[in-house]
Amino acid sequence: MNSLTAALRFILLRREAGIAVMLVLFSLVVSAIEPRFLSLDTLRIVMLAVPLILIAGMGQMMVLLARHVDLSIGSILGFSAIVAGMAFRDLPEMPWWFGFFIATFVGAALGLVNGAVVTLFRLPSIIVTLGTLSLYRGVLFLISDARQVDPQYIPRPLIEMSQTSPIFGIPWIIFIALTIALISYVFLDHTRLGRQIYAIGSNPVAAPLRGISVVPVTLLVFTLSGALAGLAGVLYASRFGYVNPSITGVGFEFTVIAAVVVGGVSINGGVGTVLGTVLGVIFLGAVSVALPILGVSAFWRDAIYGAVIIIALLIDRSVRESGIRSATLEARA
């Protein structure tokens, strides 16, 4: 009993541990119903399902930490992917790895536009990015002439990044995602700039008093979010082998936001960790893979994502409310 309370306490003190426990419980429940779920194969499928979400999730996390939100990442992903895809198609002499730069750069530029409108006119990011969600999708239709980039134009080495592995049979694309996560961790936890993002999100009014210039940092987080969504765009081409203007990236923003808030990033800014986000992304990935394995209709996915967002918000709220968490726990025990 004692150890149980101690464990509970640990969970409540560390949000990441809570998500990890949720993940384990979920896996146990699913594998109790369908034992095949607990297999290396499933792990591989989950790991393949999450890199795009993880990469864009790192950007979204930074935006949320600064007390903003970026709804346009799905369109940015599509935009960057189509520009990179068109470059592959129309400039065959271009080295294939240059697509990474194109997509990331395009994404960064679109993110910068978001940030500029938000900071320049002091508008709520949610409305601005709701507008650019539609705007970017419209422009991407215009520049692509509403035409798909067919699989034959996606460079073979790019596609192989989702298939071949440098080590342990783990595809490149997963390493890229983990590298991005690691860099994000170092950036957020061990650099001045990273800590400033937290400071702005915790208290936007006090931040300037502490010598933090809010505008450049806000611009930075939106640019990073766009750049990472752009990177996810070129990896989309790698994973799915083609880019379609009306399919690629549609609805992606909700998946990413769901994953990030499940990972314990507070929508009130200033709270959240890379580890939590990684676990949140894996959790949602496990849910999406468990559904077909359980034979549950994919129709449930969106309802579950929505419920998960709301539950995560409520948990976040209750954690903030019980300021003296451990004391409360003591009293209960």
């Binding site: 095949r36 194969d41 399902a49 799915f240 690629t248």
Partner: peptide
């Protein structure tokens, strides 16, 4: 008989689940 909703992501996951199952 499984359904990918004509979405690349869902179709891919369904297909991977088929191979595994």
């Amino acid at each position: 008989t499984v359904y990918g909703d004509d979405q690349p992501e869902k179709s891919t996951t369904e297909m991977e689940a088929l191979l595994s199952t």
